[in-house]
Design a protein around this nucleic acid. Structure first.
Lengths: 87, 87
DNA sequence: TATATTTGTGTACTATAATAAACAATTATG
DNA sequence: CATAATTGTTTATTATAGTACACAAATATA
């Protein structure tokens, strides 16, 4: 049986991504929070896989230059939805 | 000048994606809310580009079979981070 | 056109994400 | 080792996402 990805797993992975990106820029949780107008605690909780708001996630993604690729990813899903009739 | 993608634009696009996916399954906002244990109002606000929680977004994504690809996308970013030294 | 369904919006309330501050436990750095 | 910086965690408070209900506007269906 192939176990499917859970929402919890995605949140954990997103937290890990934030941590690795942050560390690659030699930033502390405090530094990142300050840069985004968020508290250190919000960063801390997000990195440990807790729930957060979309705004928080997108602010972090934007700071690490990932917003464009997210936007493209979303558009791709919408497009492939509309292209089904062509197959 | 190339105008960069904004957080607001991404939220709007995510809302549009939810709406188009939902309609492709012939579901009302109420139907989707019921299926996910969310209120119709939460779906309504998300589809109109308002802020939401990560849980809400991932529940919706999961319902439309998009969780796996989100997980892969996150992993890709982490991987390309670690592979920089190979170039 | 009439009726039913869906959607947009408002208000009041509840749950929880986010803030702020403090302190202990880790993890660098001298 | 010492000490400085960072991180994990707690408590209290504030802001806001989410719920529930109602009703009007818009859309679909008879």
């Amino acid at each position: 049986m192939i176990d499917s990805i859970t929402i919890k797993a995605v949140k954990s992975r997103l937290g890990e991504l934030c941590k690795s990106k942050r560390q690659s820029y030699d930033m502390s949780q405090q530094d990142l929070g300050d840069a985004l107008g968020l508290s250190r605690y919000t960063i801390q909780k997000f990195e440990s896989g807790k729930n957060a708001t979309l705004d928080t996630v997108l602010k972090i993604a934007n700071h690490f230059g990932l917003l464009q690729s997210i936007f493209k990813g979303v558009n791709q899903v919408v497009d492939e939805q509309n292209d089904i009739s062509l197959y």
